[in-house]
Design a protein around this nucleic acid. Sequence first.
DNA 1: AACAATAATGTTACATTATAACATTACATA
DNA 2: TATGTAATGTTATAATGTAACATTATTGTT
Lengths: 172, 172
Amino acid sequence: MSVNYNSMKKNKIINPFKPAKHKHQDCLQAAIKAAKQHCDVLGLRLTPLRQRVLELVWQSHEPVKAYGILDELKQGHSSSAPPTVYRALDFLQEQGLVHKIESLNAYVGCGDPKEHHSSQFFICHDCGSVAELDDADISGLIQKKASHFGFKIDNEMVEIKGHCQECRDSRK
Amino acid sequence: MSVNYNSMKKNKIINPFKPAKHKHQDCLQAAIKAAKQHCDVLGLRLTPLRQRVLELVWQSHEPVKAYGILDELKQGHSSSAPPTVYRALDFLQEQGLVHKIESLNAYVGCGDPKEHHSSQFFICHDCGSVAELDDADISGLIQKKASHFGFKIDNEMVEIKGHCQECRDSRK
DNA sequence: AACAATAATGTTACATTATAACATTACATA
DNA sequence: TATGTAATGTTATAATGTAACATTATTGTT
């Protein structure tokens, strides 16, 4: 019996649900640090503007709207306009530092920019928080199913809505 | 060894990729017929406006934009405005006759309104066509993974972009 | 240091997608 | 036929996103 080594990919928890009370300052700092390092290594410029937008995206684990970012950005940077935000978000998305949640038209930070990975998002209807997986089983199964009808995948979007453990517990 | 009968759900192809040349009139007619029957059974009103919007969504297997529908609707129904279209789409979506592709802000017809089902959409970047599965394996795996961290799913959005068999063949 | 080329940001305008709110008309049924 | 409800009409505006061109900052080269 053979083992398919190609399929021996890891299932990762990119970003788990965090307790309502956690030291979020640490999440933010870790994200900025990772972003700086990522850009450093690749010779990319995490300009003050881009960093500020990234910080605003990371103000919580809830997806943030572009125009929400714009409102906050304006407070310290009066020349901001929609393109200011969308360009920064484009850059951050290209670098895997931010993902767009298509079903919400909103953006979340990603703590693992180093490598391209699959993403599965779980969005809690109660607290609004998002968890992100890079689950090779899910991604692999979808690819397998696609291959059955000759479909070659470029990009997978998986956005799951429901209720996280903590919110379910607190409703009892 | 036990068998989990709960998981014995069927994997369905709700809407496969169709050959570029197929008798699309048949798809359209079947969809309208199914919609009429669906509404009949439930005592819902598939008004001329709603039926017309459904027909416009079914003009092809490519997702259609709301304002595209509006433009076409106006040609035979000059009083149409955005709410005209969005209301009809809301009704059709509630009945499972139409799905929204979130990543495209566009709408596709569904040939299987009878029961609520999971949906996995496969969108070809070349021809623009969409295929829809109701795959219990994918849906089940996602639910299983979610249960590992206590997440209770309300709704799954799976939208896969890539290249369909026919388009891949014709590019060789 | 001066220059040119490129990247990033500023600025204005507008395109696209969607909804709120209230008026009117059509339909179901008592 | 009256009456309540559902559907549609109508106007206005909110929310999301992009095009196009000007200006400024940065990088790499003489």
